[in-house]
């Protein structure tokens, strides 16, 4: 079985999309997940230590 078949078995890709509907806002779950991941990436980029930064400070 190919890798694509395995992934396809885990995530049904041949069905209608799922949507979140809240008042006038309607967005697909897939797009909502992407936006959530972007927000998460943004926050992690602000707080995660950058490699080598401490070493550079110690070298000063």
């Amino acid at each position: 079985m190919s890798f694509g078949n395995v992934v396809g078995a885990l995530v049904p890709l041949n069905t209608l999309g799922r949507y979140v509907h809240w008042h006038f806002i309607q967005i697909s779950v897939a797009n909502l997940i992407v936006i959530a991941l972007m927000v998460l990436t943004f926050v992690v980029a602000l707080v995660a230590p950058f490699p080598g930064r401490r070493r550079r400070r110690e070298n000063r």
Partner: peptide
């Protein structure tokens, strides 16, 4: 500059 050593600058 030293402040570029942050993940927010890699995007």
């Amino acid at each position: 500059p030293s402040y570029v050593a942050s993940w927010i600058y890699v995007f």
